[in-house]
């Protein structure tokens, strides 16, 4: 391969799902209580995309990773402190709302317009990565719409593996229905890969990498352009977060067999 990849990863924050998440009706629509104070994590799907991109860039000379992140600037900064030590990237920040109450097409529009303006980005070498269900309330449409706006026709949704071949083509393992995979081979960039879980574990924290990243992250945050995204014209009638269901009963002297039988029955239901 004569030229490396230009990898653009779209990824932003989600509230840490382990915290107490309480939907409220805010002045500008639905929100989470104390949202700005809740710990935020990188959207897990986008996390897989970022780690796969960093791995690919490290293995492919002359490659570079940009992370395009749309979210409240203060929360993005908090997020960067947890992901900057894990992967080498250059941040491109957009200051705007992120969460479950924005419309995918507005988000896609803002991301696509931002990507078009990245200095030095060669769109003929572009691998556009993101999470398969990110920023879409699980509809899985955002990356597709970003790709369309960038006029990329090769799109792969729910990707678990992406392997450049010796001949310059790219082999892609993609989830399809019924727990099966589809193997595709495309001529090369540009393409869209919306990642499912990928194959890589979360990288360890590298303090030096974190410091190096921060030298470009802080200026990027300061330059973050406001992004007008939301859900104009959409009315949320009811909002609730997924709830853990828990029914505790105190049963004394139950045998192991009885407990096992009850668990099996519960699973069957």
């Amino acid at each position: 391969m004569s030229q490396g990849f230009h990898l653009v990863v779209c990824g932003s924050i989600v509230p840490d799902p382990l915290q107490t998440l309480e939907p409220i009706q805010g002045a500008e629509g639905p929100a989470l209580k104390n949202e700005m104070m809740l710990p935020a994590v990188l959207d897990p799907w986008a996390g897989h995309a970022l780690y796969e991109a960093a791995h690919l860039a490290a293995a492919t000379p002359d490659s570079k990773v940009w992370l395009v992140s749309l979210g409240p600037r203060a929360k993005l900064q908090q997020l960067m402190m947890t992901i900057a030590p894990k992967a080498a990237f250059e941040l491109v920040a957009l200051d705007g709302p992120a969460g479950g109450f924005t419309e995918a097409w507005e988000t896609a529009e803002a991301l696509a317009e931002c990507i078009k303006t990245i200095p030095g980005l060669d769109r003929s070498r572009l691998l556009l990565f993101g999470g398969c269900a990110s920023a879409s309330r699980d509809a899985g449409v955002t990356m597709q719409m970003v790709g369309e706006r960038l006029e990329i026709s090769d799109q792969f949704l729910a990707v678990d593996e992406l392997t450049p071949q010796e001949n310059g083509t790219i082999r892609i393992l993609e989830r399809i229905e019924a727990g099966r995979y589809q193997v595709s081979e495309c001529a090369g960039p540009p393409l869209v890969a919306a990642w499912a879980t990928g194959r890589l574990p979360e990288p360890p924290n590298n303090a030096q990498l974190g410091m190096q990243n921060m030298r470009s992250i802080m200026p990027a945050l300061q330059k973050a352009q406001p992004a007008r995204v939301g859900a104009e014209g959409v009315e949320f009638l009811e909002v609730e977060v997924p709830k853990q269901r828990r029914n505790t009963r105190v049963v004394e002297d139950a045998s192991v067999d009885e407990m096992a039988r009850e668990i099996v029955e519960w699973i069957r239901k």
Binding site: M36, M37, P39, A74, Q77, Q78, M81, T82, P85, N205, A207, G210, M211, M214, M218, Q222
Partner: peptide, 19 residues
């Protein structure tokens, strides 16, 4: 969290969790 948000917003210091 409140103190940390202000600190990180200042850009003068870096607080690294998980380390």
């Amino acid at each position: 969290a409140w103190v940390g948000a202000q600190l990180m917003g200042s850009g003068q210091v870096q607080v690294w969790p998980g380390m």
